[in-house]
Design a protein around this nucleic acid. Structure first.
Lengths: 204, 204
DNA sequence: GTCTATAGGAAGATAGAC
DNA sequence: GTCTATCTTCCTATAGAC
């Protein structure tokens, strides 16, 4: 692996573990056993590293959010949400720091906002096709509020779960998925609510 | 107002506006037109200021969470939640920074966690009495998941709403209250769902 | 591409006079 | 209680040799 890439991977690891503001360029270079000067040969600033990592995240999450066409079964939703949560976990420093990140980098505010909009759009799409298929029983107002709650929960579940347990426990992804589906469940038919319970016992 | 108090109020204001890590002791003293030395006469460190503000928050939120006995009507819930959201808004630097705050101050982790537990306990209490009165129709599993979602939404709604709008808009508190009640609504009877819609048109 | 050395600056905190 | 002056430390970033 080229040095440039090694720097990015190590930064991601350290940002996630310690939070971006607590990771110095010196720490990154130390951990990689290269000189700080070398790091600055590859990146002109610490922000530069951050922006590059954000671009990674943006691409991965963006790609995921393209596909939610024809996701109808609870199991498909479970799987889809799990992929979303994995991506969030992979770049959790962004989520833990959002408010600061967007305050300090206007460009990130715009781009992160675009992702949030895409998430809302994806959930709306799924909910509307569920309604069309008469599997979901909800008014338009209810769907709108539900949509916001889904995205909000997906966005901050991991931050929330860190509050109780210092470490990120293994099952907290599955738990997040379960929480999101619980939001939709009361609007579903009996059959699908039972299916959710099965999934719960299987994964939690 | 004594200098000590003025420092705390100004710090709270600046922490909320800029985020705690971006507020220096020099900035605080500048804004108050006192010397940095004077600030350090009253507080032995920046953390010391933070811990004091956290204690304020802890007291106010703790007091609020003592009372949710006999809250049954949607309107009472609306009012109660509004008080909660106001307190969160007042100390929003804590919520925007939770993950860092608890990583850097173990004592805050424990204390914030205690508040979260109290919040869960309060919602559980309300939900259980609603069920007992047969106004709420949900299984124990559903109530448990609902409870988590309520607290999660209440905790991070403000951070979430900052993502789309740079400023905190006036109605975002009411919007947060509405989102939380929307979580409960599908488990309520028709009469109370209508009541929620009335409240929505009244406040949003 | 990589190193060493160091500039330049900001932030937290203290000493001592008034 | 409050001020000025200053110390120390830490961090980002650059210069210049190899």
């Amino acid at each position: 692996m080229k040095t440039r890439e090694r720097i990015l991977y190590k930064s991601l690891e350290l940002f996630n573990e310690l939070g971006e503001p607590n990771v110095t360029t010196l720490l990154i270079s130390d951990e990689l056993e290269i000189s700080p000067g070398n790091l600055y040969y590859h990146f002109k600033s610490k922000s530069d590293i951050l922006i590059n990592l954000f671009a990674w995240y943006e691409n991965e999450m963006g790609a995921l959010l393209e596909v939610p066409d024809g996701i109808l079964d609870i199991e498909d939703q479970w799987f889809f949400l799990h992929l979303i949560f994995e991506t969030i976990a992979k770049y959790r420093f962004i989520y833990n720091d959002v408010v600061h990140l967007i305050k300090q980098h206007e460009s990130i505010r715009v781009r992160f906002n675009r992702i949030v909009k895409k998430k809302q759009h994806a959930s709306l799409k799924i909910l509307k096709s569920l309604k069309k298929e008469e599997r979901l029983n909800a008014t338009d107002d209810e769907i709108e509020a539900l949509c916001e709650n889904i995205v909000q929960t997906a966005t901050f579940w991991l931050s929330y779960s860190v509050l109780s347990d210092a470490q990120l426990p293994d099952d907290s992804l599955a738990r997040g998925v379960y929480q999101v589906i619980s939001l939709v469940a009361p609007f579903l038919g009996k059959e699908q609510r039972d299916q959710l319970n099965e999934l719960k016992t299987a994964y939690l």
